[in-house]
Simulated scan of single mutants.
Amino acid sequence: MFAAAIFDMDGLLIDSERPIMAAWIDAARTLDIELSHSQYMQVVGLSTSESQAVLAALLGGDEAYLHAIDQVRQRLQLERSDGEPLFPIKTGAAEFLDALRARGIRCAVASSSTRGQIQACLGSLDLLHHFSAFAGGDEVARAKPDPALYLLAAQRLEVAPADCIAFEDSENGAKAALAAGMRVVVVPDLKHPPAAIVERAFHVLESLHHAVPHLPLWFPAETARLP
């Protein structure tokens, strides 16, 4: 049915949203600002420039934002020093990627993170070998929900967008994949997608572990394209 799989990264393949949110909430407290979970949720799924604008507004301006992001970077760097991955693999992600590779299915990443960040994060978790192509937020002019990232990933896979299935956790990501002409499986992370996205989604699953039983239908043996 499909020839390739394209994945978002943050909140889908790696559990990054929670530690980053916690770091921002703690950083806001150093400015005597109580940044709530619901306020932070406004930035989930946005591009770096968009999230910077929202956070600066919430924190009281660019100067406060620069102070806070320095605190965030310091905290995340300290957490990385204990020998454990800063952003662990999400439940079912390694299992699903192994199953796709066993069937010879080409995979790509289409993430708002920069291409360097994608490769660093996935490399630290020994996941890079699962992917034939990468499309980072620094390589396109327009961020999700614009389809540019997904179209670039499909182009690099040399697969038509209609022959790709996208896996996303965020509303903007799902909108981007749908706009690219792909079917979308939504695996919610910090927040559940709105009804309008649920209605248009191919499936909404609790984790990528729950995607494994669908593989024979989504990727029949004859669609395998790995060299």
Rank of each mutant, 00 (worst) to 15 (best):
S36A: 11
M41Y: 06
Q42F: 01
Q42K: 10
V43T: 15
V43R: 05
L46H: 13
S47A: 14
T48V: 13
T48M: 09
S49Y: 10
S51L: 11
Q52L: 12
V54I: 15
L55S: 01
L55N: 00
L58A: 04
L59G: 01
G61C: 04
A64E: 04
Y65Q: 03
Y65A: 02
Y65D: 02
L66C: 13
H67M: 08
H67D: 05
I69F: 06
Q71D: 09
Q71W: 06
V72S: 08
Q74V: 08
Q74D: 14
Q74M: 10
R75P: 00
R75I: 01
L78N: 13
E79K: 13
E79I: 04
G83M: 05
L86T: 13
I89D: 00
K90M: 10
K90W: 01
T91V: 12
T91Y: 10
T91N: 09
A93I: 07
A93L: 08
A94R: 15
F96G: 00
L97Q: 07
D98V: 03
D98E: 11
R101A: 15
R101K: 14
A102Q: 15
R103Y: 11
R103K: 15
G104H: 12
C107A: 14
C107W: 04
V109E: 01
A110K: 00
T114D: 00
R115M: 08
G116R: 07
G116A: 08
Q119M: 13
Q119H: 12
A120D: 14
C121W: 10
G123W: 12
G123P: 03
S124T: 12
L125N: 05
D126Q: 14
F131I: 07
S132C: 08
F134G: 11
D138H: 05
D138A: 05
E139L: 03
A141Y: 03
R142A: 11
R142D: 09
K144A: 00
K144R: 13
P145Q: 10
P145D: 11
P147Q: 02
P147N: 04
A148F: 07
L151A: 03
L152D: 00
L152E: 03
A153G: 02
A154G: 11
A154V: 12
R156M: 03
L157H: 09
L157Q: 05
E158V: 04
V159I: 15
P161S: 08
P161C: 06
A162D: 12
D163F: 01
D163I: 04
